[in-house]
Design a protein around this nucleic acid. Structure first.
Ligand SMILES: [Mn+2]
Ligand SMILES: [Mn+2]
Ligand SMILES: [Zn+2]
Ligand SMILES: [Zn+2]
Lengths: 140, 140
DNA sequence: AATTATCTTGCAACATAGTTGCAAAATAAT
DNA sequence: ATTATTTTGCAACTATGTTGCAAGATAATT
């Protein structure tokens, strides 16, 4: 399999195994976020449910993937772009869910704006999920 | 039970039953959002799981409650303040989750700001959930 | 107020999502 | 090549959510 993939795994001190390579490959060769179920079935390949759970969990811990909470209460996973590492995520960008094609995207260049809060409230993390119609679906 | 409660139910064309009154009362006498589990056990009272699901669902449909998606992928429910009605919610405010006391609040007066999106993207709905420390917990 | 019609509830049974312990298999270290 | 460590898959389990249906409660009608 791709060399880049085993590099990423080794860099994060994860032993390179077949399922980790295949699951990571799904994210690298896919734009958009994936749900657990997507991964479990993807491409005819079938991984054990438990392995998928543990792999996603490991990837999130290591800062390879981040989670996206969506309105329908299903977690999606997407690649971290740059400066995330073990236990320290910096994925402060807007997420977009298209109601036509269902795709969930990271809008990596669209920074979370400052939000006003009541007096003495402290913000640590701000999640913004926009639901709407993406460029592609608007045209068709 | 409180008169106001049966009024709300009748106004929404819901027959006034004991469980609906008790569950609605929980929200009226409680600041902050409640999760399904909170409601199921609340105050020694025990309602059947199925009844709680169906009641919450009915209240959301009627515009009495709205849902709040949280980062840990658990839905919370909170009262709609004003102009929500059957199938048309207008709860476009910020939600705040305190990481100390765990309380989830509707910041009803804190309007969702406009967010920049890529060209040709259309926003229909914007969810903002802020995680941090509330006024109360900051002082202690 | 009594009867009838409609709606709601609780139970059982089911479906799906997620977790844990453990032996076997795979990977990494020596 | 051998040993040590990590990961996997299975089974068994818990938690969460859904559906059909008969019995009970509420609302409408007389
Ligand atoms: Mn993202
Ligand atoms: Mn709210
Ligand atoms: Zn789209
Ligand atoms: Zn607090």
């Amino acid at each position: 399999m791709d060399n880049r993939i085993s590099d990423i795994l080794r860099r994060n001190r994860l032993s390179v195994t077949e399922s980790r390579q295949k699951i990571l490959n799904l994210f690298l060769s896919n734009t958009g976020a994936l749900a657990h179920a997507d991964i479990e079935h993807k491409a005819g390949e079938r991984f054990d449910r438990v392995t998928v759970y543990r792999t996603l969990q490991a990837f999130v811990e290591k800062g390879i993937l981040h989670t996206i909470p969506t309105a329908d209460n299903s977690i999606k996973y997407a690649l971290c772009k740059n400066d995330c590492f073990e236990g320290h995520h910096h994925d402060n960008h807007i997420h977009f869910v298209c109601s036509k094609c269902g795709k969930t995207e990271c809008l990596d260049d669209f920074i979370i704006p400052a939000v006003k809060l009541p007096k003495n409230y402290i913000a640590n993390n701000i999640e913004i999920v926009v639901n709407g119609v993406c460029n592609n679906c608007r045209k068709n």
